[in-house]
Write a protein that binds this DNA or RNA. Sequence first.
RNA 1: GGCUCGUUGGUCAAGCGGCUAAGACACCGGCCUCUCACGCCGGUAACGGGGGUUCGAUCCCCCCACGAGUCACCA
Length: 486
Amino acid sequence: MTQKVRTRFAPSPTGFMHVGNLRTALFEYLIAKSSGGDFVLRIEDTDQERYVEGAVEVIYNTLKQVGLKHDEGPDIGGEYGPYVQSERKGMYKQYAEQLVQEGKAYYCFCTKERLDALHESKEENGGGYDRHCRNLPKEEVEKLLAAGTPHVIRQKMPIEGSTTFNDVVYGPITIENKELEDQILLKSDGYPTYNFANVIDDHLMKITHVVRGCEYLTSTPKYNLLYEAFGWDVPTYVHLPLIMGKNEDGSVSKLSKRHGSTGFADLVADGYLPEVIVNYIALLGWCPKDNREIFTLSELAENFSIDGISKSPAVFDYDKLLWFNGEYIRAMSQEDFIGRAMPYFREVFPNGDRPWDVLASILQPRISKFTEIPEMVAFLKELPDYPADFFVNKKSKTNLENSADMLRAAIPVLEGLQSWTLDAIHDSMMNLVPQLGVKNGTLLWPVRIAAAGQVVTPGGAFEILCILGKDESLRRLNLGLKKLNA
RNA sequence: GGCUCGUUGGUCAAGCGGCUAAGACACCGGCCUCUCACGCCGGUAACGGGGGUUCGAUCCCCCCACGAGUCACCA
């Protein structure tokens, strides 16, 4: 009997979607969708101190932008709601108390101060909680409870033996029970801890595959002990290798803010396309059988399989991400490209019409991010101040003298053009070349320099003249001529 | 420090006992060319170390080294 796969993405509303979280969400989605399963969104807001206004919207927006559609969640409901943990607060207490009654958990009245002091003296007790309240006499517990003493509920962990679980990507993992401290299930504010709420919710929501970063690997036995205490079936565990960032000194550590733009929104603001981010992070820790690299989300879902998940951590590489972005841009239809680029075109040409297709044709193969556009075409808006020796180019066989000749020859020809189209400009200049008896470059180099005012330009002389328009082109060529004559 | 996991070029990675150890990014050449890109062609570059097992180890086992993660009333 194969039950329907159900995975869940359970972020905390922190107002920030880290790419590590996003990748976890992506893999959860892919694991579900690659087998026709369900992908559930659950908001884990049990830490009231870290609650951030509007953070849930960030989560919705991010998922929407990358196309990870959840089948159940706070906004769309579902069979197993509510999907926000703060709205389930009452349920956890009941389960925690059930364990207390069964003798599998107990009330702990230790103060924060005592616990902190315990931490200081790590060496003696092994670093963990000393189970001070584990065996308090019943009467004393009743008395403290009646007095309204603040308390938490902790689970009794086995003192001896070991716990083993099987992870789909890492294999069997065993941890000695003495490493496990009596974990807190219910906090003194009545909220469950992450670990506890997770288990309860995953069970109640019938989650079949628990997918998360492998920073949770060593705490998984605690989960199993909880499932065991309730007599529930344990889910399939899929731990994902960490995404690392490169530090200044060359070392690596878990990707975090100090590594640069590591939030989804940051990356988008930097000019990376949402679909590119998805494509790239899918390949961090996962590899398809055929080694393909370019995937849409639905293609990922078709090709995904858990056995392609790697065990070793992967370093987030902005160079590769940038390459992906460029590939996606180049693969766009020109129409699509123009649509996406228009806001940036407008930064340079706020008003009026321009030959957008020509502009697109020179930019599309050259940019890796749309955000590069304004700077790249700034010379079209304003002619840079440039030195005359830009006209000198050995390969094109140009010097100050013949450059002036070339401009003198080109100007009247261009002036006489009836229509200012790319073809017309092209043909007129190419026609002029044999008349002058020079090589293409000898004519085109000075024309391009005069038109652009810089040595390196996107596109060639024809495109630049075309985009500039007739008046501006002629103005610039005459200016160039003047510069050469001076 | 204890525990857990990991270790193939600078990076992502294929490999799952026998291969000249793929591919991609980056880098370096070349071609194309009015510059720069794109595109195409080519190149540099890797199995952390030591023991086993085996006819034979990148691949299986052990030890070491290194790296990372984790040890909260945070998730």
